Measured scan of single mutants.
Amino acid sequence: TRVETATETAWISLVTALHLVLGLSAVLGLLLLRWQFPAHYRRLRHALW
């Protein structure tokens, strides 16, 4: 049971790290898009909202 718990903890930390990385890359990508294509971003936002 001790090994299982350790594996579970490792998986949880791995998944958390993955989610953090994905979230950060998504935010960075959005910022980059907004910085590179302001007109396109505004049009996209206008279409979405």
Rank of each mutant, 00 (worst) to 15 (best):
L24G: 05
T1V: 12
I12N: 04
T16G: 02
E8H: 00
V21Q: 01
P38N: 10
T16H: 01
Q36S: 15
S25H: 07
V27W: 08
T5S: 00
L33H: 09
A17H: 04
A47Y: 06
T1L: 13
I12G: 02
L33K: 07
L31S: 11
G23V: 14
L44R: 06
R45V: 07
V27Y: 09
W11G: 02
L22P: 04
L31T: 13
A10G: 10
T5K: 00
T9M: 11
H19T: 01
A39I: 09
I12K: 13
A6K: 10
A26N: 00
L32D: 04
E8G: 05
G29V: 14
S13H: 09
Y41R: 05
V27I: 13
T7V: 13
A47C: 09
R43C: 07
A6I: 06
L33V: 09
R45N: 00
L20H: 04
T9I: 13
T16S: 09
W11L: 03
W11Y: 13
E8F: 00
L32S: 10
T7C: 03
L32N: 07
L44T: 07
V3M: 04
R2N: 10
G23S: 09
H46K: 05
L24I: 10
L31N: 01
H19P: 03
L14G: 01
V21M: 12
R2K: 12
V21E: 07
L44Q: 00
A47D: 09
L24A: 07
Y41E: 09
E4L: 12
E8S: 04
H40V: 10
T16M: 08
L30K: 04
R2I: 12
L14N: 02
S25M: 02
V3S: 02
L20E: 04
T5P: 01
E8R: 05
A10D: 05
A26S: 10
Y41T: 13
R34M: 02
L28Q: 04
A6Q: 11
R42M: 11
L22T: 13
W49K: 12
L20K: 05
Y41K: 08
G29K: 01
L48I: 13
R45W: 04
T7S: 14
T1K: 11
W49A: 15
A6H: 07
L48C: 12
L33W: 06
V3I: 13
A6V: 04
L28T: 04
T7L: 12
L32Q: 06
I12R: 09
A39K: 15
W35M: 15
V27E: 02
W49I: 09
T9L: 12
L44W: 10
E8K: 04
E8L: 05
L44S: 04
E4W: 12
S25G: 06
L30A: 12
W49R: 02
L22V: 12
R34D: 01
A10P: 04
A39P: 10
L33R: 01
L24F: 11
L32C: 06
L44V: 14
H40Y: 08
R34F: 05
A10Q: 08
L33P: 05
E8A: 03
A10T: 09
G29M: 14
W49N: 15
T5W: 00
T9P: 15
L24D: 02
V15T: 11
F37I: 07
L44Y: 04
E4K: 13
L28V: 00
A17K: 00
L30D: 02
E8W: 05
V3K: 02
L48M: 11
A47K: 12
V21K: 03
